[in-house]
Computed example of a mutant assay.
Amino acid sequence: MATGDSPNYPIIDSHIHLYPESELDTLAWCGPSHPLHKQHSLSEYATATGSPASLEGFIFLETDRKHDLAAGAGGWAMPLMEVEWLKRIALGTPREGEGHGAEHAQLCLAIVPWAPLPSGAEVLSRYVTEVEKHAGASFGKIRGFRYLVQDKPRGTMLQDGFIEGLRWLGRKGYVFDLGVDLHSGGKWQLEEAVEMIEKAHEGVEEAERVTFIINHLCKPDLSVYNPTDPKFVAWRTAMFKLSKCSKTFLKLSGCFSEMPDSLKTAPVDEIFLALQPYLVVILATFGSFRIMYGSDWPVCTVGVEDAWKKWRRVVERFCDLASLSQEEQIMIWSGTAIKAYGIRELMQ
């Protein structure tokens, strides 16, 4: 795994974003003044991680490219451009200057593109057909889809079309990556997410129920250290409810973004102590067999020096102090991601 006498368990980074400099203007959130407004490709990722021998690969998550649901297929151009970009990574066929090569292809274990979930099952089916055309030989690596709801209006997750789309994903064997934000959006997002999952699974046979992979612990406010604080209680309550469904998994990722600046720059042990109330809850609710390690690179680097390695040490500290068994630690570092995304056959 890395430091000291810790075991060198295989690592799958379950949550990273990549984009070339030539496509920066397609990102909905990244203007010229943004600290991440530059190429973030595999060469930069390799530098950030130090390319440890234990890193088996990563799962790519869509980067919220510009789109327009109202325009139908005409609004899909930039997300489909991202699918083409990931195809070049997965097949090891870069364009000049894109920052990756044939040697990086094996690291791309799974791809989770954007999808127009609110548009309903019929539109979603047409969209995935287009994804297959653009992905070509890399289509088998597409294991699920994401439509970020953290910045969307109330009720988005509960629309008939959204629920239809989730049920379609379940029938087709795709997972849904769920991105909600307690810190910036409010506790209603978590309450709505619980209701959404219930609606998506209601009356559906277990085998066809869509799997939900929850990003970044639902983004709690990590300036709150008091377990009796109403914000913490709301988050904890949602974690218990979300974990009751056996087809939900949780990414131990994205925490730097929700920390106060003073904590981001603190030593690893201090960060771990601040996170301990949250880590206790996720272990009690989801358990190590439904928790997966993720870095949220390059988002994790904003305001944090050597962020990928630092987060790895925090998670390592968690595994050590929680006295997790070898099997439990392997699940967090790689096994849960393999199970949730169904990628074991892709790694052989």
Rank of each mutant, 00 (worst) to 15 (best):
M1P: 06
A2E: 13
D5A: 14
P7I: 07
Y9K: 07
Y9V: 08
P10Q: 00
I12M: 04
D13W: 03
D13I: 08
S14G: 15
L18N: 05
P20D: 07
S22M: 11
S22P: 08
S22C: 14
E23N: 12
A28E: 10
W29K: 07
G31P: 05
L42S: 12
L42I: 11
S51A: 11
L55D: 00
E56I: 00
E56C: 00
E56M: 08
G57N: 04
G57S: 05
F58P: 04
I59T: 03
A70G: 15
G72I: 14
G74Y: 12
W76F: 15
M78F: 12
M78S: 15
L80E: 08
M81R: 15
E82Y: 13
A90R: 09
G92R: 10
R95I: 03
E103W: 03
A105H: 08
A105T: 06
I111A: 08
V112L: 07
P113N: 12
W114I: 06
S119L: 14
E132M: 09
A135M: 13
G136W: 11
A137W: 08
R143D: 01
F145S: 04
F145V: 06
R146V: 08
Y147C: 00
L148E: 03
D151H: 05
P153N: 01
T156P: 00
M157N: 07
L169P: 10
L182T: 02
W188D: 12
E191D: 15
A193N: 06
V194I: 15
V194L: 09
M196D: 08
K199P: 05
K199T: 05
E206V: 13
T211D: 04
I213G: 02
K219N: 12
Y225V: 12
P227W: 08
F232N: 03
A238K: 07
F240I: 11
L242N: 04
S243Y: 00
S243M: 10
K244P: 01
K244G: 11
C245Q: 11
K247A: 11
K251R: 02
L252R: 06
F256S: 08
S262I: 11
S262K: 13
K264H: 08
A266Y: 10
A266P: 04
F272I: 10
Y278A: 01
V281E: 15
L283E: 00
A284P: 05
G287A: 00
F289C: 10
I291Q: 05
Y293K: 02
Y293Q: 04
G294C: 04
G294A: 07
D296H: 08
T301G: 01
V302D: 02
G303F: 13
V304D: 05
E305V: 10
K309S: 08
R312W: 06
R312N: 03
V314R: 02
V315Y: 03
S323G: 03
I330R: 10
W333I: 05
G335E: 02
L346K: 07
